[in-house]
Design a protein around this nucleic acid. Structure first.
Length: 393
RNA sequence: GCAGGGGUGGUCGAGUGGUUAAUGGCACCGGGCUGUAAACCCGGCGGGUUCACACCCUACGCAGGUUCGAAUCCUGCCCCCUGCA
């Protein structure tokens, strides 16, 4: 049990911003890092070859307990050798616990101390997710980083609501940890790396801090989560309906209080601006569906702001999506062509936009890391935000 | 030539005497999307003036007519489709 599942080292700091190295059993990841979301074991519209190629070079992606549990089922994935082998992804994998679905599917669930009773969004069947079940599923998936099962209340939750929720999350954190440890001892983890890299092969587990926008609750939640003890800590329950200043406020006050010797993960965030702003406040890891979802829906992120490929003004524009981007899509295709694909309903449009957006997010993080290491993050941050507000021409 | 059916806003297609620029779909124009129930959702969509409430104009093949009132009824004309010769 004393063996470390995860290595963590801060290599440079500037203000609260930190550049670090996260060592997982499937490779070392430079932070701050953005993790593309691959809910169903697939980053929608983007092949693993692309994620591994130089212009993206994603080191870690997400999978989702709830979705994979429903289909194809935890035992199917286990029988296929864990999610890595099942999907053909060799790099690091973090799985969300299903906690977010407690929020996003809130109208078709029943919450209790034991866990959550869901109406499956696929066929309406009743199913029961709990800290224990979530840990069992995540063991079967064999992800490298497991998330504790939490309850995510709406961002605008009142103090009392948020307090009750936080306490439930704290009790679930304990149960998650306990069941996780049992499963590790029992060898239930389906994702042991084929060859160790000096680290133990066990899965790592992160705890999640809740408390909505109430700072006293955030502090309390943090204390109680740290008390349980995890390999890393996440801030959950943000970008779920609260005002943006409130989100930045929580991150600004909470991140610095999180254990400095562990990675800090801000769940579900965010826009490119959010990433840079939250790195400045001390966050190391991010994930968000924005680059892929918005890409599928026709929006490209560029160094000069967002570009809606549906707009008629691009009809004959021969420039790439972002003139400052060197991704495979921008090297080859024009706005006019991508717009044409989108307008005619070609699935390639979604694929190209998703690819470009991920390239932009991942490259932004690459530049963030470099800036922190060279002590130029403050300037980078200012110039980056200026660029994002300059408007696409 | 005869018989039947039909011509509606970018398009397909409802509507068959009485609010209303005229239901819907598509196309088009614009907006949204933050641990993915999302290749989705929302809005606009005849023209003109106005910041706006609003106002004016032009519209259901063309031309007349009936009527307080017509895309809807009548007459003529022009096209299109199907069948028979």
């Amino acid at each position: 049990m004393s063996e470390e599942a995860l290595g963590w080292e801060v290599v440079a700091r500037e203000g609260e911003a930190r550049a670090g190295l996260l060592r997982t059993r499937r490779g070392t990841i430079e932070t701050p890092v953005f993790m593309p979301v691959g809910t169903l074991g697939s980053v929608k519209g983007v092949r693993f070859e692309e994620l591994e190629a130089e212009d993206l070079d994603a080191r870690i992606i997400l999978g989702n307990t709830y979705h994979l549990w429903l289909r194809p089922g935890a035992e199917v994935v286990r029988a296929c050798g864990g999610l890595h082998r099942f999907a053909g992804w060799r790099r690091a994998l973090l799985t969300d616990s299903g906690g977010f679905q407690v929020f996003s599917l809130s109208h078709m669930r029943k919450l209790s101390e034991g866990g959550v009773e869901f109406r499956s969004h696929t066929d309406g069947q009743l199913c029961f997710l709990s800290p224990e079940v979530s840990m069992e599923v995540q063991a079967a998936l064999g992800s490298d980083i497991v998330m504790a099962f939490d309850e995510c209340p709406p961002g605008r939750a009142e103090h009392e609501t948020a307090r009750v929720s936080l306490e439930l999350t704290a009790r679930w954190a304990r149960r998650s940890r306990a069941r996780f440890d049992e499963l590790q001892r029992a060898g239930a983890d389906a994702g042991r790396a084929e060859s160790g890299e000096g680290l133990s092969g066990r899965q790592a587990i992160f705890g999640i801090v809740q408390g909505a926008t109430h700072l006293d609750l955030r502090r309390e939640s943090l204390e109680r989560t740290v008390e349980v003890g995890f390999d890393g800590y996440a801030v959950g329950g943000l970008s779920v309906g609260e005002e943006k200043p409130a989100m930045y406020g929580v991150v600004e006050r909470v991140a610095p209080l999180m254990p400095a010797d562990r990675p800090r993960y801000l769940m579900g965030v965010g826009t490119p601006e959010d990433l840079v702003e939250c790195v400045a406040r001390g966050v190391d890891m991010f994930d968000c569906v924005i680059p892929t979802r918005n890409g599928r829906n026709g929006q490209a992120f560029t160094s000069r702001g967002r570009l809606n490929i549906k707009n008629a003004r691009w009809t004959s524009d021969t420039r790439p999506l972002d003139e400052a981007c060197g991704c495979a899509v921008c090297r080859r295709h024009s706005r006019a062509y991508v717009r044409h694909l989108y307008m005619t309903g070609e699935m390639l449009a979604a694929a190209l936009l998703s690819h470009h957006n991920l390239a932009f997010f991942l490259d932004t993080m690459r530049r963030v890391r470099q800036a922190i290491r060279s002590g130029e993050f403050t300037r980078f941050r200012r110039e980056f935000l200026e660029g994002m507000n300059s408007g696409v021409g």
